Amino acid sequence: MPSFAYLLLPVLFWSGNYVLGRMTVSEGIDPYTISFLRWSIACLIILPLAYKKIWAERHIIAKNWPLLLLFSWLGICNYNLFLYIGLTSTSVTNAVLLNAIVPVIILITARVLLGNKTSWVQNTGIFLSTIGAIEIISRGSLETLLHLKMSQGDLWIIVAAISWAVYSVLIAKRPKEMSLIGFFTTTALIGTAIQAPLFFLFGSTQISDLSATNWGTLLYMGLFASLAAFLCWNLGIQKLGAATAGQFIHLLPVFSISLSVLFLGEHLSSFHYIGMLLIFSGIFIATLLNKKLMTLKAAR
């Protein structure tokens, strides 16, 4: 399989997760049940393959448990649960376009948490992407913007994006002595455990009411959107590098919106196109153009 396919597949799997997540919540299955069962399935699949690694790294886990707890809370629990909650009252199109600003949110978060400085080029990109997000949230309506009216689902998606951004920035502090499979399995187990009380307290769906189609969707989420995506993504990074891998995540809106139009009958409005143009322009300026200018500057 070509090297780029290892990066293309995870984006496709994650795009399918958005569409299936929207379809599942539309059928009345609550987000707490979806997220908990998805990660329970992922843990059941990965644990037989990774338990030896976890046992061998138990002392590392015990030493770094506060950090692992934070990663689990941000990346496994918050991001996924908030995403599904958001999809109960917003469209897949809005969700993926708002998530498209994650790379820019990461730049801001890295500056706040790690003291990383941003250039004027990056700041320009951040500004454009922010305007694009506002365009989507306001539905292109000045009246909506002035009265601060926005979908509750959009707010949940934004909080989910912030959680993922903080997770992505802090991942640099991942215990280096832990294997990737050990780290992923440990955080998946902890994240699922965090969600367990939320599932029992707020989950309204009866497990016995889930259809074969529902279980098939959850299996996809656990197997492909979680495990396969993680493994392929890391293989792709090893083959092509993190810088190249980061650019593939920008295909998420393209794949997700295409799937939502095909399978959910969603339609694009003018504010979607405007917001998309601004977000992608901002991302291009803050990442690719900034990197190009920095390379030229270093070569002088």
Score class of each variant (00 low, 15 high):
Ala5Pro: 01
Leu7Asn: 00
Pro10Asn: 11
Val19Ser: 02
Met23Asn: 15
Thr24Arg: 09
Ser26Arg: 11
Pro31Asp: 03
Pro31Ile: 07
Ile34Cys: 05
Ala42Ser: 12
Tyr51Asp: 06
Lys53Val: 12
Lys53Gly: 07
Ile54Pro: 04
Trp55Pro: 06
Leu67Lys: 07
Leu68Tyr: 06
Leu70Arg: 03
Ile76Cys: 04
Cys77Thr: 14
Tyr84Met: 12
Gly86Pro: 04
Leu87Tyr: 07
Thr88Ala: 15
Val92Arg: 00
Leu97Glu: 04
Asn99Leu: 06
Ala100Asn: 10
Val104Ile: 11
Ile105Tyr: 02
Ile108Trp: 01
Leu114Thr: 04
Asn116His: 14
Phe127Asp: 04
Leu128Thr: 00
Thr130Ser: 10
Gly132His: 08
Ile136Cys: 03
Arg139Asp: 08
Gly140Asn: 07
Thr144Phe: 14
Leu145Ser: 03
Lys149Asp: 15
Leu155Trp: 05
Trp156Gln: 00
Ala160Phe: 05
Ile162Met: 09
Ser163Glu: 08
Val169Arg: 01
Ile171Val: 14
Ile171Glu: 06
Ala172Tyr: 11
Pro175Asp: 03
Gly182Glu: 01
Ile190Lys: 06
Ala193Trp: 05
Leu198Asp: 03
Leu198Trp: 13
Phe200Gln: 14
Gly203Tyr: 01
Ser208Glu: 15
Ser211Gln: 13
Ala212Met: 13
Asn214Thr: 10
Leu219Ile: 11
Gly222Cys: 04
Gly222Glu: 01
Phe224His: 07
Ser226Thr: 05
Gln238Leu: 15
Lys239Met: 12
Ala245Asn: 04
Gln247Cys: 07
Leu251Gln: 10
Val254Lys: 02
Phe255Tyr: 13
Ile257Asp: 00
Ile257Trp: 01
Leu259Pro: 01
Leu259Glu: 00
Ser260Thr: 04
Phe263Glu: 06
Gly265Ile: 07
Ser270Tyr: 08
Ser270Arg: 08
Ile279Pro: 00
Phe280Tyr: 12
Ile285Asn: 01
Asn290Pro: 05
Lys291Ser: 12
Lys291Gly: 10
Met294His: 15
Met294Leu: 15
Arg300Trp: 14
Arg300Val: 13
